[in-house]
Nucleic acid binder design. Structure first.
Length: 426
RNA sequence: GGAGAGGUGGCCGAGUGGUUGAAGGCGGCGGCCUCGAAAGCCGUUGUAUCGCUUUGCGGUACCGCGAGUUCGAAUCUCGCCCUCUCCGCCA
C-alpha cells in the first residue's frame, strides 16, 4: 500500500510511476476524499474535546452532589452532531482505503521502464542449452511414455489443469521438495516453516492478493467461512508477523516453506494449456525474508542467488532477467525472474520470481520493527526456491535420452534411493 | 457440534458507568550505590493521527472486532471472532 502522506507530498513522482506501470488510478479523486476527510475529522475532534471537558465538569458536579442537568442537556446536541460527523469520517476512511488498496507499488529506480516483457533486462545467463542429436520431446509425451504423468486421469478426477504423478514421477516431485528445503536450510540459513494452506481475507489483503486479484483465488467460503486456498506460501508466511512489532536484532528473518499452491487464474484460459506449466494446483518451495529498509535490495540479490544455486546443482541452464515496469507484479518494487531452459518449447520459462516488496506489504499487513522510539515498517521479500512442477518439466526435457529414458541429476540421486535414471515401463 | 470459562499495554495481571491511557508486577531505558557487576533504591516507559511556538507541548482515538444504551462506556446490552476446559465426532 502507498502511504497517503507520500501520495500528498509526491504526487508527480507517483503519477509517473503509475504511467510506467500502465496503471490507471484517479489520484485527484483520492486527494479530494482525503482533504474532505481531514476537514470533517478536525471538526469532530474539536467537538469531542468539548464533550470531554463537559464530561469532567459533570462528573465533578455529581461528586459534589450538585445538579448537572443543564450541562447534560446541552451536550445532547453535541453528542448527536459528533455521531453524524463520525459517520462521515468512517465513510471517507472506507472510500480512501478502497482507493489506496488498488494502487501498485512504486518501481525502484533500477527497474527498466517498458510496456511488456520485451523491455525486461537480461542480467546473466548460466549453462549452455544442450544440443540434441534427436528431436527432443516435451514433458507431456515423455511423462506419458514413462508412465509417470497422467493428465487424462487427473482431468477425470478434478478437471483440466491438474496433474497426477505416479511412481518415479511422484517420487521425483517429493525428492525435489526435500532437496530444495535441505539446501536452503542447511546452506543458506533459512528456517523451515510449514504453514496453513488456507488463509483468510486479512492475510490475502496483507500480501496484496486482495481486493484486486480475487478472481485468481479459489475461495472456500462454505459455512460462512472467510477462507481461501493459498496461491503461494508467501501468503501465510508473510502474514506470520501481521500486526506485530519485531526487534531490530531479529532481522533479517529468513523462512523457507513448502506448500501446494492453488490458482484459479480465471484470465489465463488458452495460455499454456498443455502440460504442467500452468496448473490449478502445483507444489512450490518459497523463500520469504523480513529485513530492515536499507538492506532489502542487497537481500534480494542474495535471495535470487539462493534460488539460482538450486538450478546450478541440478545443472539446468537458466537466465536471470529484471522485469520492466510494465511486466512486474502489483506489489513489487523490483523483481528478478529466473527462467530455465525448456527444450520442448525451445525457450526459457519462468521457474522463480524473486521480489522486493519494500514496505508495500508491511504497510498493508502492519508488520513493523523497532530500533529507536518509533516503530518502522519492515521490508518484505520473497522468491520461489523453486517451483517444483516446472522443475520436473525442466528435468524431464533437459535430461531425456534418445531411448526415452531420463537421467536423474546427480544432486538428486541421494533423494531417489540412488536411482540414476527413470526408465520406460517393461 | 454441545456445555462452561475467558480475551486489558512488549509480557503477566487489577479494574465499583464519571481526573483510568488505564493499579500492581515483570521486562526495557536512565540514574544512585560499586573497582566492576549483582542485589537494593529512585525515576522513566504504548500505538496511531492531527495541530503548534517541533530535542517539546496540546487535541483526538485505541482495553478482541462491530453495533447499541448514555451527557459520558474497559465497565451495561446485542451480534461476531478467537483462546482455554469438559463432552461428542474424527486422521
Amino acid at each position: 500500500m502507498i502511504d497517503i502522506k507520500f501520495l500528498r507530498e509526491n504526487l508527480e513522482t507517483l503519477r509517473t510511476s503509475l504511467e510506467n506501470r500502465r496503471a490507471t488510478v484517479d489520484l485527484d479523486a483520492i486527494l479530494t476524499i482525503d482533504s474532505a476527510r481531514r476537514t470533517v475529522l478536525h471538526e469532530m475532534e474539536q467537538l469531542r474535546a468539548e464533550q470531554n471537558r463537559a464530561s469532567e465538569e459533570i462528573a465533578r458536579l455529581k461528586r459534589d452532589k450538585q445538579d448537572a442537568t443543564p450541562q447534560m442537556e446541552a451536550m445532547k446536541s453535541v453528542s448527536a452532531r459528533i455521531k453524524e460527523l463520525d459517520e462521515e469520517v468512517r465513510g471517507a476512511d472506507a472510500a480512501l482505503l478502497d482507493q489506496l488498496l488498488v494502487i501498485p507499488n512504486l518501481p525502484d529506480a533500477s527497474v527498466p521502464v517498458g510496456a511488456d516483457e520485451s523491455a525486461n533486462r537480461l542480467e546473466r545467463a548460466w549453462g549452455e542449452p544442450r544440443e540434441f542429436d534427436f528431436e527432443p520431446k516435451d514433458h507431456v509425451d515423455l511423462g506419458a511414455a514413462l508412465g509417470i504423468l497422467d493428465f487424462e486421469r487427473a482431468a477425470k478426477i478434478a478437471g483440466s489443469r491438474f496433474c497426477l504423478s505416479r511412481g518415479q514421477g511422484a517420487r521425483l516431485e517429493r525428492a525435489l521438495i526435500n532437496f530444495f528445503l535441505d539446501t536452503h536450510t542447511r546452506e543458506h540459513g533459512y528456517t523451515e516453516v510449514l504453514p496453513p494452506f488456507m488463509a483468510n481475507s486479512d492475510s490475502l489483503r496483507g500480501t496484496g492478493n486482495l481486493p484486486k486479484f480475487k478472481e485468481d483465488l479459489f475461495s472456500i467460503g462454505n459455512e460462512g467461512k472467510d477462507l481461501y486456498l493459498i496461491p503461494t506460501a508467501e501468503v501465510p508466511v508473510t502474514n506470520i508477523y501481521r500486526d506485530e512489532i519485531l526487534r531490530e536484532e531479529e532481522l533479517p528473518i529468513k523462512y523457507v516453506a513448502y506448500s501446494p499452491c492453488f490458482r484459479s487464474e480465471a484470465g489465463s484460459y488458452g495460455k499454456d494449456t498443455r502440460g504442467m506449466i500452468r496448473q490449478h494446483q502445483f507444489n512450490k518451495v518459497e523463500l520469504v525474508k523480513f529485513t530492515t529498509p536499507e538492506t532489502s535490495f542487497e537481500e534480494l540479490e542474495q535471495l535470487t542467488r539462493n534460488a539460482e544455486t538450486i538450478l546450478k546443482k541440478l545443472e539446468l541452464p537458466y537466465r536471470v532477467v529484471t522485469l520492466c515496469t510494465g511486466d512486474m507484479g502489483f506489489g513489487s518494487a523490483k523483481t528478478y525472474d529466473i527462467e530455465v531452459w525448456v527444450p520442448g518449447q525451445k525457450t526459457y520459462r519462468e521457474i522463480s520470481s524473486c521480489t522486493n516488496f519494500t514496505d508495500f506489504q508491511a504497510r498493508r499487513a502492519n508488520i513493523r520493527f523497532r530500533r529507536g522510539k518509533k516503530p518502522e515498517f519492515v521490508h518484505t521479500l520473497n522468491g520461489s526456491g523453486l517451483a517444483v512442477g516446472r522443475t520436473v518439466v525442466a528435468i524431464l526435457e533437459n535430461y531425456q535420452q534418445s531411448d526415452g529414458s531420463v537421467v536423474i541429476p546427480e544432486a538428486l540421486r541421494p533423494y531417489m534411493d540412488g536411482a540414476e535414471r527413470i526408465l520406460p515401463p517393461g
